[in-house]
Amino acid sequence: MTNSMNNLELVKKVVTEAVPVLKIEEVDKQQLAFEIDKRDVHHVLTVLKTSGWKQLSYMSAVDWIDENKFELVYLVFNWEVPVYVQVRAKIDRVNPEMDSILPIFPGVKYYEREAHEFFGIAFPGNPDYHKQLILEEWDDIPPLRKDFDPEAYSDRKFPKREYPADFSVVDPKNKSIEKRKERKARANALRTGGKEQ
């Protein structure tokens, strides 16, 4: 068996020979991330699948709101070579769209539905991508976008419990905090023989 270093080299070779890679990140000893162009995703996933990375472990998105981009992350796994491969590709944040990889990994069906539900990304090629999966009767912008404010949504939709009295422990009029500080200072003085405060 080859050791983990050689495994990483093997993956790098497989991927860089297939497509132009924008950035390589070694996440850890068992995980490599490749940033590529969105048009190369299908090709690189096909190459990886034929070279043994035949299990799609996860697919999700990241919202880079400052760059105005979504980043799709595909995570594939090989049962012979213990290296996870992340394939990352950035897509536009306005009218986000990415061709489905359903023909390559059929299991992506539900991940794409999830990504559509939580980020609003369209996946043409997946016949069901627009159907609801986890959220039901959602009536706002997709909730995992960074410009969605969950607290405002919660305040608007869900009644909050109102307490007749304030039971919080910290009371500005109560001097117990001062007393605690004094106690600590004294304990510290005793411990250090009065040298330091």
Binding site: P159, K160, R161
Partner: peptide, 19 residues
């Protein structure tokens, strides 16, 4: 279920069951 607990500001979790 009493007041939302640590999920009080979540978009998915209700805050008060007795409503």
């Amino acid at each position: 279920p009493i007041n939302g607990g640590i999920y009080h500001d979540s978009h998915a979790v209700i805050n008060q069951l007795d409503q």
